[in-house]
Computed example of a mutant assay.
Amino acid sequence: MPTRMDRHPWRLGPRGQRWLDRLLVGGLLLLALGHVVAGQLGSTVFSVLEVVPLLWRRRHAWPVFLAVAALSAAQAFVVDEPTVGQLAFPVAVYSVARWAPRWQGVTALLVGYAGAFVAAVRWILGFGAGELTAGNLSPYVVSIGAIVTAAWALGFAAQSRENYVASLVARAEQAERMAEREVELAARDERSRIAREMHDVVAHGLSVIVIQADGARYAAAKDPDVAVGTLETISTTGREALTEMRRLLGLLRDGDTGVAPQPGLDDVRHLVDEARAAGTRVEADLPSAPVDVPDGVGLAAYRIVQEALTNVRKHAGPGATVQVRVAVGREVEVEVRDDGRGAAADSDGHGLGLVGMRERAAVHGGTLEAGPVTGGGFAVSARLPL
């Protein structure tokens, strides 16, 4: 898989850029030695002064261009022959078009055209190429102007390409960050979903097992037959909880887990029977026939009833009666009400049951209300749209 650095085009690093500029300046100065050999002191001085600023052309393109342009204008009045230093002018124009703001690049191009005319005049006069006429002047102006235009066009194209590549890289990095964020959110949602499932399965199964175990302990001394039946209920509940746990762990693996499917709305009746077997008095008002509802909604309703019954066993107290009602119309209505301790029930404040039930309802666009009711007891009421 390509890394982020692989998406960047190859380019010289800072050190390579410095050495390239040094080689450019050194090559031009080497050519300027011809003026020294010819004894042209003025041409030598101007060549050195025009070429040396190119060392800073990348970071200070506009000041370097202004310096080279000013020296080129002064040279036109002091020296009447072409010099090697004049090669620095198109390089400075390129640098401005490449690294400076757009308006500075356009200004440099216009200055270059004016300089082409001045240079053409001085060259004609310096070479003694006849009279200063339009016919003699045009070839020089066009030739020098073409060099300036080419330098500006190359710099402009390089700047445009760099901006385009930078925008592509920025968009790619933004897309990568968004993809990573989506993966992180999906993983967090999946962890929350599995945490809710595990809480419901473990809390429900263990609450039944604890209650049955307490009952079996007291019944064993007086009626061993009752203890045997209670232990059988404990065994069945433990196996069912283990099966559900295997299914949840199977969600973390690829492929078929080979375990039972997730429970649905029709399995609420099993929860009621299980609660009754555990000694809880339950009055149930459930659909008389199987109901076809979306799997997600059915699972949410099942888990809400399961968690509500678990809370009744944990907090309502002995002798509490529970009313469970499930109705299906344009939405699934779930209500679990008990006449136990209600607001007086003990709680450590660390439970996740109500939080998980509200999250389940919210996932399907539903609502859930839970709290003590007038006259004692506790009620959980949920509505899940279909």
Score class of each variant (00 low, 15 high):
Thr236Asp: 15
Val165Ala: 00
Gly375Phe: 15
Leu231Val: 06
Ala120Leu: 02
Phe65Trp: 07
Val84Trp: 08
Ala278Gln: 05
Arg281Ser: 13
Leu30Thr: 14
Ala362Met: 11
Glu335Arg: 15
Leu309Ser: 04
Arg341Asp: 10
Arg161Asn: 03
Met245Arg: 07
Arg188Glu: 12
Glu184Trp: 02
Gln306Glu: 08
Gly298Val: 00
Arg276Asn: 09
Ala179Glu: 02
Val121Lys: 07
Leu286Cys: 11
Val305His: 04
His60Leu: 10
Glu244Lys: 00
Ser43Gly: 15
Phe77Lys: 06
Gln174Trp: 09
His199Ala: 01
Asp223Asn: 04
Tyr113Ile: 10
Arg193Asn: 04
Ala219Asn: 03
Ala175Cys: 05
Glu369Cys: 12
Val78Lys: 10
Gly115Pro: 00
Ser138Glu: 13
His315Asn: 09
Gly135Leu: 14
Ala278Val: 06
Arg217Asn: 12
Glu274Val: 05
Val36Thr: 13
Ala289Asn: 08
Thr230Asn: 04
Val165Gly: 00
Ser192Ala: 15
Arg358Ile: 06
Gly329Phe: 01
Arg325Gly: 14
Leu54Tyr: 14
Gln306Trp: 05
Gly205Thr: 04
Ala150Arg: 05
Ala150Tyr: 10
His204Val: 02
Leu54Cys: 14
Ile147His: 13
Pro82Asn: 11
Tyr140Ala: 07
Asp256His: 15
Thr280Gln: 11
Phe65Gln: 05
Trp56Glu: 09
Ile304Leu: 05
Leu125Gly: 08
Met198Arg: 02
Val148Gly: 14
Arg239Tyr: 15
Trp152Ala: 04
Ala76Val: 02
Ala116Asp: 11
Pro53Gly: 15
Val324Lys: 01
Ala220Ile: 01
Thr107Val: 12
Arg193Trp: 03
Leu71Phe: 12
Gly250Arg: 02
Val334Leu: 12
Ala344Tyr: 06
Val326Leu: 03
Ile211Pro: 09
Glu190Phe: 06
Arg161Ser: 02
Val141Cys: 12
Gln212Trp: 04
Trp152Val: 00
Glu283Arg: 01
Ala327Ile: 03
Glu184Ile: 01
Arg303Asn: 03
Thr243Arg: 09
Arg383Leu: 06
Ile194Tyr: 10
